[in-house]
Nucleic acid binder design. Structure first.
Lengths: 218, 218
DNA sequence: AATATAACTGATCACATAGTCAGTCTCAAG
DNA sequence: CTTGAGACTGACTATGTGATCAGTTATATT
């Protein structure tokens, strides 16, 4: 009865609580989720949650750490295959585990230090991937490579945060499996790959933007 | 004492409550804000909030409507100046009013119908702007103009939702005044304007993506 | 088997919350 | 002046919250 396992679930109670919390937080937000709801979802008592995590904030932190670790893991495994243009492509949550991507989408905006560090790491990876792409001749030389890496990363993650809008407008669940995201990648490729401006319009815009006060180059 | 106005503030109490709610919601989120906190901020009793708005949800809806109306207003006024590439540039909150942009950034992700409608409207505007740009020869022809308009809009709005990350990584407050955002525009221009891929790499990637279903392992 | 340690529960606490209500005050119209 | 309606308040309620705690059960160690 009071065993470590409950039902046919072989996860430890601690893991079950964490996963339940991630699911609840992803679905209704951290503030919108009570410990009671998590306890019911994990089929444990509410007291056990606090026994394991101390406070709700502690649970939140544990969720952040787990999500970050999960994503880092899949990121490095995907990274081995070669440089990736789309930072999002490097992030793929296991379909069987807790909904890490949804959780991240929810918590990206209300900045915890753990998530901030994750974002920083993704930027670094994107920066490296861009440099690699330039070196291999796949990408054009970039004037502000780091800044471009940052913006590309935040565009991707921002789209993740707004994935419900993307689903409504585009009919694409960018959190879903790779084949579901293929349409998005094609659209992104059209915008980012060849560029939108005509050559002369780009030169003109560039000159107009370059004019201001100070110049920041690497 | 019980007059319509309080202190030297000539807004109606109803407007003061709404503005205070927007400020609190923007700062700490809707769920993280109590009616008591709003009442204190607006210098009214908590009962008056419910007298005017019925429920907290009603207040939230009123905030959404006000924010949407404010942004729509500035959007159309900016639109008169000509087609805009960056959807964000069309949105500028008055510096004196409540922090509408911060509020929008907070609420973009937890989709209310009002905000969803606003997003749809911005997409329409971006779509029209793209078409205009193509027509005037500023932009290259676009294969999937509507989809590109959607993605560009969501990238911009997603960046807005993640503006704290942008500030940390880029040192740019994209909510701030236009001159503050100039650096971001230059970066976005480098990525979107001329494109990142070399010509042959783009052709190659494009061909690879055009194939209906393929397992893409780079 | 004995014992210590950790897992776990359910009752309970103090507190914050959204919402209700009775009644006061202001002001304008009759 | 009277009256009625809406603005407004402060006390109140019912409920939900995170957290505490005493006590119980399981697991591991010896």
């Amino acid at each position: 009865m009071h065993s470590v396992n409950a039902g046919d679930d072989d996860r430890t109670a601690r893991a079950r609580i964490r996963d339940a919390a991630i699911a609840c937080f992803a679905a209704r937000g951290v503030d919108g989720t009570s410990l009671k709801a998590i306890a019911e979802e994990a089929e444990v008592s509410q007291g056990l949650i606090l026994h394991h995590f101390g406070t709700k904030k502690g649970l939140r932190t544990a969720c952040d750490e787990y999500a970050v670790a999960t994503i880092q893991e899949s990121k490095t495994s995907v990274m081995g295959a070669g440089p990736q243009v789309d930072p999002l492509a490097a992030m793929r949550a296991d379909s069987d585990g807790p909904p890490v991507m949804e959780y991240l989408a929810r918590t990206l905006a209300d900045g915890s230090p753990e998530v901030a560090a994750l974002v920083d790491g993704i930027v670094e990876a994107a920066d490296a991937a861009l440099a690699e792409g330039v070196k291999s001749g796949m990408l054009k030389p970039i004037d502000q490579p780091r800044e471009v890496a940052i913006v590309l990363t935040l565009w991707s993650l921002g789209l993740l945060a707004l994935h419900r809008h993307a689903e409504r407008l585009l009919g694409v669940d960018i959190i879903g499996p790779p084949e579901e995201r293929a349409r998005y990648v094609r659209i992104a490729m059209e915008a980012l790959g060849r560029g939108l401006f005509t050559d002369e319009a780009y030169q003109h815009a560039r000159d107009a933007l370059a004019a201001p006060d100070e110049e920041r180059r690497s």
